[in-house]
Amino acid sequence: MTEESLVGAGRRAHGPAVAAAKARRWGAFYYAEQVLRVMKGYTWSILMYSVGQPVAYLFAMGVGLASLVDTGNAAIGGVSYLVFIAPALLVSAAVMTAANEFTFPVMAGFKWRRTYFGPHASPLTPGQIAAGHIMAVTLRLVLQSALYFAAVVLFGASPSEWGWAGILVATLTGLAFGLPLMAYSASITEDKGQFALVMRFIVMPLFLFSGTFFPLDNLPPAVRWVGWISPIWHGTELGRVLSFGYGEPPLLTVLHVAVLAGMAVTGWVLTRRRFALRMGQ
């Protein structure tokens, strides 16, 4: 093909071959741009959420509740209660955001607004549309977690110099929980309130029983498994190691990373497959 890009030489579009080559290469970024533009419309509420939530939680739990429980308890690593829960709150906030961004917008894309089907008719592939959505949400998670971490620092709750890495841990945890959920969202063809159930019976229990507010060992052995399968627990423990050198066997730390990465990758693969299936019919 002898097509040349005519952009700049007049106001002509480049030819189909150029468009297809660019889309094959950068398609996921093009779609991410769309998702970010839509998010931009919600800048104010996203900001309020990202700043307001940490301040409220850190203050209520870390200052209010802490006044009752701060007894220099060795079970929480010998640090103040605020320091102990800060990584958990950071991680949980990312998971909550992921739970929202990978459910309702996916349903909107396939069903409510059918917004995925616009780009589907363009050179983009279903896998790129999924990837673009994921990339945009990842960016949101990084920014939100950075703001959250800034609040943690202001509250003086991140003693280690590695605490900032909690931003990455929170983002990874958001993806570990969010991507399998996204695959599920992409498989729903009829809205019967499934997402409300996910929030109430999966997100909330995980938030409460993942060693968030107290060490997992404090739970009866019969329910400790909730924590072990919970990305929030793995993310929280990892965050604690980074934030204040929480004592745990190094192998367990490696396991946290492996579990989180494994869940995220599996979720991504399943999501891609779902998107391709649903858009190829």
Partner: peptide, 8 residues
């Protein structure tokens, strides 16, 4: 946004 999908 739609034009971006074609890399324009």
């Amino acid at each position: 946004v739609y034009g971006r999908y074609f890399g324009l």
